[in-house]
Computed example of a mutant assay.
Amino acid sequence: MSNREREIFDCIIIGGGPAGYTAAIYLARAEIKHIIFTGFKPGGQLISTNKVENYPGFPNGISGYKLMESFKAQSERFGTKVKDNSVVQINFNIRKYLHEIILDNSLKRKTKTLIIATGAYPRYLNIENENKLLGKGIYTCANCDGVFFKGKKVAVIGGGDKAAEESIYLSNICKKVYLIIRDNKMKASKIMQKKVLNIKNVEIFYDHKIIKIIGEKKIQAIFCKNIKHNNNSLFKVAAIFLAIGQIPNSLICKPNIKLDKSGYIITKYTITNIPGIFAAGDVQDSRYRQAITSAGSGCMSAIEVEKYLLKVQERI
């Protein structure tokens, strides 16, 4: 066993989104020995957001990438160690008040506490031809891949803020944007709805559900069913961008940590059912799912870690 594997941290943070970095900032300022493992996608889903306009302190908005770079820089200024390894396994309670993680390079790290801030990943349609055409006309990030469809017709699937934002971005580079919404109304915030409704090359179709994706090596069209009138429509598009929600990245927690029926970690003040294990951000938030609420729960988890460590110290 190497010296690094013998080292014991007060806290290990898994995940490098707003929750993880905020927790790191608070732990660092409290002089709690910690390290953060960001995984393969540092910054989480926010790095693919073209412009964040609802995060306080940025009157003109800021790109998700720049915002997360600022989070990282601030945590590092206070002494946070940031590593891009992924955690592939958690061994809970290897002995009293001690847990262990295993990294993607097979190294092990021991810690008194864990903050799980692994976020969530995009939800897919789960229909025929979808897996085959992922990355070949089916995408989940307009800011990342929209540029390849400049001057073409595309579709955005979903009715929330994410779908609205994708539509706005694509409308500036694409000839036409079809916004396909399964419900009879948009769920996006009022300000986002207003922006979308005022864009001439965005056409909204309510009560529509995708039933078929047409194409062999790339997308040629999509068939949609009008749920209200029970008829079908064909949309000839070069690409579709999915914005239909997310799935919590909580697989690593099974079966020890209690999850709800949708896979979100069940918490009370970020505290899980296992002493010393805390959760923050989208992996435990099925309701709000905002950058600022993730950051807030990251702060809460760090404060709970500090309280827990003080109690543990008193018992040792």
Results as ranks from 00 to 15, higher is better:
78 F>P: 02
136 K>T: 02
194 K>R: 14
65 Y>V: 04
203 E>C: 02
99 H>V: 03
191 I>F: 13
178 Y>A: 04
4 R>L: 14
140 T>L: 01
147 V>C: 05
200 K>G: 00
10 D>I: 07
274 I>S: 06
131 N>D: 15
230 N>E: 15
58 F>N: 05
77 R>W: 01
239 A>L: 02
267 T>C: 12
103 L>D: 04
184 N>T: 03
166 E>M: 12
161 D>G: 08
242 L>F: 08
87 V>L: 10
184 N>V: 00
222 I>H: 04
11 C>Q: 07
153 K>W: 00
245 G>R: 06
274 I>D: 00
74 Q>K: 09
224 C>V: 15
260 D>L: 10
117 A>T: 09
49 T>H: 04
9 F>R: 05
97 Y>C: 03
128 E>G: 01
256 N>Q: 13
148 F>K: 05
208 H>L: 12
239 A>F: 04
176 K>I: 05
68 M>N: 14
54 N>A: 11
53 E>M: 09
236 K>H: 11
3 N>Q: 10
108 K>A: 11
266 I>C: 13
297 S>V: 04
178 Y>E: 02
69 E>K: 15
161 D>E: 10
263 G>D: 08
219 I>H: 04
229 H>S: 12
109 R>Q: 14
176 K>R: 13
28 A>F: 02
175 K>R: 13
128 E>F: 09
73 A>R: 14
134 L>W: 03
7 E>C: 04
61 G>V: 10
296 G>L: 09
228 K>A: 02
127 I>T: 09
119 G>C: 09
168 I>D: 02
221 A>F: 06
176 K>P: 01
233 S>T: 11
164 A>E: 05
287 R>E: 15
233 S>H: 11
126 N>Q: 12
